[in-house]
Design a protein around this nucleic acid. Structure first.
Lengths: 242, 242
DNA sequence: CGACATGTTGAACCTCATCAACCGACGTGG
DNA sequence: CCACGTCGGTTGATGAGGTTCAACATGTCG
């Protein structure tokens, strides 16, 4: 049985999970982790597939195991705003609430590990360490959201695009565990279409496109293709991002 | 001793606190509440006074007991963004972090009840119920922040101003426990200067001023003075807010 | 090959920012 | 007591940054 523990027994899925220590699950060990394992259901999600929708009841929560998840909200008349990107050890969904607070879809091919909401909440109640991890995670999401509010409210198109590229660079460096040698150009992937980038930055596709070509002309970035770019000098990008 | 309990003893400050059940403290009773009471320090803050600054180390946290607290962030070149308003039972400050994530100042004369951060964190660790309350609070702050991102990124000046007035109306109705009779005009207070409103909405003072007079001309709102307005028909305001 | 999606580029337009003047309220000092 | 400066708010004229609309390029898939 994969949920038994002890020398010689088979390891459970949670125990061998690649993000075990980074994600909220990191709070649990032994029999506690086994309990989580019982309700965890891994799932592959292809790029473009929706994971959860606002309007829908919040039936499950999830960890992002790999890939990128795009969170968005839409105004009645169709205007859209991307309100966040979730990367590898991030947590997805809304605990203690009956409806999802946003629309979530896979930006690139991704893997998530989902939990039925009610059962996960029961575990939160039972294991304060788990709830603590979730709190820490929520707090840092709140910090990021507020940082983004400054961008949306006060930055120019140029600064917005630069900030976005910088964000990707930072996240890629973390999750990829990639160390750049001085002088080495780091290469990054754009997990979003121009349209989604625009919706993330509160701009239009055209403006995003123009600003990207402008950064390219200024040799701040190089485009290897529409979805990959390199940054010769991160500090210069940082300056422009403000 | 005010921290002892039992029939006939004097009630502690926390026990008689007006927001005791609404704030995070609501999780505690009896000896637990007494522990919180030991580290709680109430404080009056005059309008305009700063409460905490980013850059400063996060030495304390607080509950907003009365009044309104303005949270903001400033770009190196001085551009400012108000990233949130805190009302009566809201929680102020950043647990588990060495520096404050924002600049906080009293928007109007306010009272807060502060706790040394380290000691409060120790209580969180000791009383899971307290941490749970804080999590719930943080989650709903995150929801609001994301809602505001839609406003900042996608709404027009007109919609922004209308949304802001609507927000005030909603918060006033909650905290004031005020029930509007059908046909009765509800009256609200603007806790922010035009300048701060602009910084909250990602606009300039001039645009805010123009949009307010526009709403006034359309009879959506009435200004009794610069800091007070009434709304004859909240649904109309809601329509304009989008 | 044509249909479609995604991205870039150009031109015209418009919303909102900028700059400046003005107004009323308030406090201070001659 | 009134002139004066200051502060918060409004209003007007002008202009720039970003949107809108449209054309075009490129790549992909039936």
């Amino acid at each position: 049985m994969s949920m038994e523990l002890g020398i010689g027994t088979k390891l459970s899925r949670c125990e061998t999970c690649s993000i075990r220590h980074q994600a909220v699950c990191g709070a649990l060990t032994g029999p506690e982790l086994a309990r989580l394992n019982q309700i965890a259901k891994p799932r592959k999600v292809a790029a473009g597939q929706t994971i959860m929708s606002d309007e829908d009841p919040a039936t499950f929560l999830a960890n992002v195991v790999s890939g990128v998840v795009k969170l968005s909200k839409t105004l009645p008349d169709g205007r859209q705003q991307v309100i966040g990107l979730l990367f590898s050890p991030d947590f997805l969904g809304r605990v203690f609430n009956e409806t999802n607070p946003y629309f979530a879809e896979a930006a690139v091919d991704s893997e998530i590990c989902s939990f039925p909401r009610k059962q996960f909440e029961a575990l939160l109640d039972e294991f304060p360490g788990l709830e603590h991890r979730l709190l820490e995670h929520t707090l840092s999401e709140l910090d990021s959201a507020r940082e983004w509010m400054v961008l949306l409210g006060r930055k120019t198109a140029q600064e917005k695009v630069a900030s976005f590229l910088l964000l990707l660079a930072n996240r890629s460096l973390i999750t990829g565990c990639h160390h750049i040698q001085p002088g080495e150009e780091a290469s990054f992937e754009l997990p979003l279409s121009r349209n989604d980038i625009a919706d993330y930055l509160g701009l239009t596709v055209e403006t995003v496109s123009r600003q990207i070509t402008r950064l390219k002309s200024a040799n701040v970035i190089n485009l290897v293709d529409n979805r990959h770019f390199t940054v010769p000098d991160l500090d210069r990008l940082r300056d422009i991002a403000g």
